[in-house]
Design a binder for these strands. Structure first.
Lengths: 144, 144
DNA sequence: TGCCATACGCACCAAGAGGTGAGAAATGGA
DNA sequence: TCCATTTCTCACCTCTTGGTGCGTATGGCA
């Protein structure tokens, strides 16, 4: 214990950790941009948004009740809210046909399609690693 | 009136919509798998999880307080919760050094790294389309 | 006459997410 | 002796999220 730090931390570990941090210095990102991106991700990475996005991507144009049927577990209120949000963000177009009873159709915009494509990798990951995650959970849950 | 629907809706629109749906028939996915994937997406597409994932990806190993400093706005409680969840899902490894005061380090597992890579496309999309989304919102907000 | 279908808006309420502040545990330093 | 440090857990409280049910417009239909 010639070094007082040895009493508190393992020096090798400290050195290792700090070396690692040094090799990965702070990225020179504009914090303003980063905040906006984080915000946007927070909006877009919503569970219902993701599910509706995927559904519209694979089915094309759908009307309100059709979406409600296919997105299992979503309430009418949440679906309305989600679609409004997506419309505001420019991800879907909402077409109202002035007929009785009302007929409203939703479809992805090119922006929505590009977002869906961007999420494609995540879906693939989820499918591919589902088993690994479940096993990790089992291992975590069955120990101390 | 061979089809009673014609009385209530514009036939051309119906035909168009149904043709569209026909070209995109139901995907033959196992609903059990799909439910699991949706569930996993719901877990993983959490705001804090995403931010922590990205941070660990670009900085490597970090200890608790470092993460708390860098992920702006996260509370201690949420950070603990998020890290536990990620550990349970096999996305991060948690290393406790039995020293005083405690030193706990977090790093991504290979699984975590692969998820981060899968989300890469989404980050790029967000950066690239930030402007488009903001403009869509302005347009939406300033009309009727 | 009265009911149905469709896509909502609104109001009310329960459940859960998340913030805050306290405390715990071990030890070197003032 | 007492404090600072670090990574939490726990209890309490607030605020948001989301579910449920009701209302609405309108024209065809039994």
């Amino acid at each position: 214990m010639e070094n007082p730090l040895q009493k508190r931390f393992a020096p090798a570990e400290i050195a290792e950790a700090e070396a690692f941090i040094d090799t990965n210095p702070e990225a020179p990102l504009d914090p303003r941009i980063e905040r906006l991106v984080n915000d946007l991700i927070g909006r877009v990475a919503d569970k219902w948004t993701l599910l509706v996005l995927e559904l519209l991507e694979e089915r094309g144009t759908l009307r309100f009740t059709r979406i409600a049927e296919q997105v299992e577990g979503i309430s009418q209120k949440m679906l309305t809210q989600t679609l409004r949000q997506m419309e505001r963000d420019g991800l879907v177009i909402r077409t109202v046909h002035p007929v009785v009873p009302p007929r409203v159709e939703y479809a992805l915009t090119p922006l929505g399609n590009s977002l869906s494509a961007a999420f494609c990798g995540v879906w693939v990951w989820a499918e591919r690693n589902l088993e690994a995650v479940e096993e990790a959970r089992r291992r975590f849950d069955t120990r101390d």
